[in-house]
Design a protein around this nucleic acid. Structure first.
Length: 505
RNA sequence: GGCCCGUUCGUCUAGGGGUUAGGACGCAUCCCUUUCACGGAUGAAACACGGGUUCGAUUCCCGUACGGGCUACCA
């Protein structure tokens, strides 16, 4: 009988959730939903020294905004496997139980080495030309642990309160083979694997132990994480094996990394591409650094998610714009690429533009109105709806609307020089003054009438340049469709602007 | 350095033993347009290299190069 599909997103609250993490969550969510399974949020806060205030809430809010909501876990209603915070689970003694089991079966041991002693060991090995110093089957023989110390001595040291860690006893030379849904079979020799710390001296488990214990206890069917975890997967296989749980372990999927748009390396939280790296604004109170979010930059969550989904995955055909439902029904790990994908800021903008165009003018207006009001501009809804209709084809982001069409709200105080030097001559003033008079006689002030009026006026007063009219009324060389724009501005305003510009020029 | 993973247009990618190697973003040109755009059409642009295997490799295998990741009592 197949296991119920259950995937978890398990970030550590050490800062804002960056878009790579969002993608990991997204892929897990898509797979879970596709198979009618569960999506769980677990908080891996086993490192107290790196805990950042507000990070947990940020993670929860980000997932909500993105529309990839867990149905179980921290912030989303506890399910049958509560608690979902590792620090709380530690209090229950869950991890220690498993560590004790490994200790009892001889697959783990106790080590008393201080960090100074570990440093010394590494230096010694480096001096002896060992390229990758590690605590392993060879080096542990020279360290202070329960394998080198007599039993009663170990007991005495523990009782004396000396801090110690529990380490995994990795065999010296053994092939470790495991299967990854995305990459296929991967083989590593255990000589490359170090004796990972399982339980830290403060009693907290490390990630290595904790995620395994929780994945088992929470009946997780698929463990999805970034490629940076691939090298530690062999350790994890060993832990499952020694716990007698190798057949119950989740299937593994290591996602390719998201790379920087220019140059090389993985995408960092600071990138010069001009686009955000975080879903929402994030302020790190430790460093005082601010990071802008996709939400605040005018992205819609659908566009953000769509773009992220296609970074390393594709449906197998040419489709690119897909709703969340379509992403769910088409998703599979088999179609996830193995190689890293460079983040493409231009295409990301394009995605948002596509989603912007799917919105009605009414919806756009609802989003734009608060942005205008923040600038102290108060206009009736109908005006803003029409404004959105005229400006949307030029915009990539909702936040650009004002900048792209500020002349709808503010009279010009300067006139595009390029256009004026090229097209304005000694006759122009007279011609456009006559046009203004014609405009004044219009009683039915709409786009079509303005257009007709402009055309017929030319037969009487002479050739008129449309772009000049544009500059005279808006100040800028480009913008929304001219007569629509003038229609919306209204007769009074247009005449006033025309008179103002003609008196200056 | 060692180990692991990877490599199709600039970027995201489809494909897969015999194809004119397909799409998208971006770019260029043209059409539409008395403004501004949208739109439409067209174009430039890729299988990292070297050996095999094969009648035939971009596709399979092995090397090399290059790129990335990991190498903590961090996740």
């Amino acid at each position: 009988m197949e296991k119920r599909v259950r995937l978890r997103f398990a970030p550590s609250p050490t800062g804002g959730l960056h878009m790579g993490g969002v993608r990991t969550a997204l892929f897990s969510y898509l797979f879970a939903k596709k198979h009618g399974g569960d999506f769980v949020l677990r908080i891996e806060d086993t490192d107290q020294t790196r805990y950042v205030n507000g990070a947990e809430e940020y993670i929860i809010n980000s997932l909500k905004w993105c529309g990839i909501e867990p149905n179980e876990g921290v912030g989303f209603g506890d399910g049958p496997y509560a608690p979902y915070r590792q620090s709380e689970r530690k209090e229950l003694g869950i991890y220690k139980k498993y560590a004790d089991q490994l200790l009892a079966s001889g697959h783990a041991y106790i080590a008393f080495d201080t960090s100074e002693e570990l440093d010394e060991m590494r230096k010694r090995l480096e001096a002896a030309k060992v390229v990758a110093p590690q605590y392993n089957a060879v080096t542990r023989q020279n360290m202070r642990n329960s394998l080198t110390l007599p039993e009663n001595e170990v007991k005495k040291l523990i009782e004396s309160g000396l801090p110690y860690v529990v380490r995994l006893k990795v065999p010296r030379n053994e092939e470790i083979r495991f299967h990854d849904i995305i990459r296929g079979w991967v083989t590593v020799n255990s000589s490359q694997v170090d004796d990972k710390v399982l339980l830290k001296s403060d009693g907290m488990p490390t990630y290595h132990l904790a995620h395994i214990v929780d994945d088992i206890e929470m009946k997780i069917s698929h463990a999805v994480r970034g490629e940076e975890w691939l090298p530690s997967a062999p350790s994890h296989i060993l832990i499952y094996r020694y716990l007698g749980l190798e057949h119950d372990m989740p299937k593994l999927a290591h996602l390719p990394l998201i790379l920087k748009p220019d140059g090389n390396g993985k995408l960092s939280k600071r990138d010069k591409s001009g686009l955000p790296m975080f879903p929402l604004d994030w302020f790190d109170e430790r460093t005082g650094e601010k990071y802008v979010g996709y939400r605040e930059s005018g992205f819609t969550p659908d566009a953000f998610i769509n773009m992220l989904a296609l970074l390393g995955w594709n449906p197998g055909d040419n489709r690119e714009i897909m709703s969340k439902e379509e992403l769910i029904s088409n998703f599979s790990f088999e179609r996830v690429n193995k190689s890293g994908a460079k983040f493409d800021p231009e295409k990301t903008k394009w995605f948002n533009q596509q989603y912007l165009r799917m919105k009605t003018d009414e919806q756009l207006a609802d989003a734009v109105i608060p942005l205008l009001e923040a600038k102290g501009i108060h206009k009736e809804k109908a005006f803003v709806v029409e404004f959105c209709r005229l400006i949307k084809e030029k915009a990539h982001f909702i936040t650009e609307f004002f900048d792209l069409g500020s002349y709808f709200f503010i009279s010009p105080n300067s006139y595009d020089e390029k256009v004026m030097t090229k097209k304005w001559n000694h006759e122009s003033k007279e011609l456009f003054t006559k046009l203004a008079v014609k405009f004044e006689s219009i009683s039915n002030w709409d786009s079509q009438t303005l257009h007709d009026c402009f055309q017929t006026a030319q037969t009487e007063i002479g050739k008129l340049d449309m772009q000049v009219l544009r500059v005279l009324t808006t100040g800028v060389a480009g913008g929304a469709q001219l007569f629509d724009l003038l229609a919306l501005l209204g007769k009074e305003e247009v005449i006033a602007r025309l008179n103002a510009s003609l008196s200056i020029l």
